[in-house]
Design a binder for these strands. Structure first.
Length: 117
DNA sequence: GCCGTGACTTCGT
DNA sequence: AACGAAGCCACGG
């Protein structure tokens, strides 16, 4: 893996590096939960860390930050940011249910294509 | 090195 | 269905 956007991150904590790579690997049209990303990255209990990473370095590493949502299939942002994220997801043909949740059984990423060095 | 801080999650009420 | 508490962990001050 190690895409060019994620070069020079070796100074970061191993888990943080893994999280960045996992998020980067989420394909368009798919979503993953904070907990799911943490699990793929090797620490099932690192969900809050995933959130913190997105908050602090989503722009810095050009991550598809909008493809990460919470375990209920909902967007975990204030109304303003939530609308932006929803639009980005809709643009990838991701469908939302009437209750405001992403149709998880259709769009939840299964980790296909993910591998580590 | 302690302490507060999160775009969280799970399990009780 | 909604709410609160507890667990969680790297990071920055």
């Amino acid at each position: 893996m190690c895409p060019k956007e994620l070069t020079n991150i070796s100074h970061l904590h191993p888990f943080t590096q893994a999280v960045l790579q996992v998020i980067h690997a989420i394909p368009s049209g798919k979503v993953q939960t904070y907990g799911g990303v943490a699990r793929f990255a090797g620490n099932p209990k690192g969900a809050r860390q995933v959130a913190r990473i997105l908050h602090s370095s989503s722009q810095k590493y050009h991550l598809p930050w909008h493809r990460v949502i919470n375990s209920q299939g909902k967007i975990s942002l204030d109304p303003v940011g939530a609308e932006e994220q929803r639009l980005l997801l809709v643009a990838e043909d991701i469908t939302f249910l009437s209750n405001g949740r992403v149709k998880m059984d259709e769009h939840l990423w299964d980790g296909d294509g993910l591998f580590f060095v």
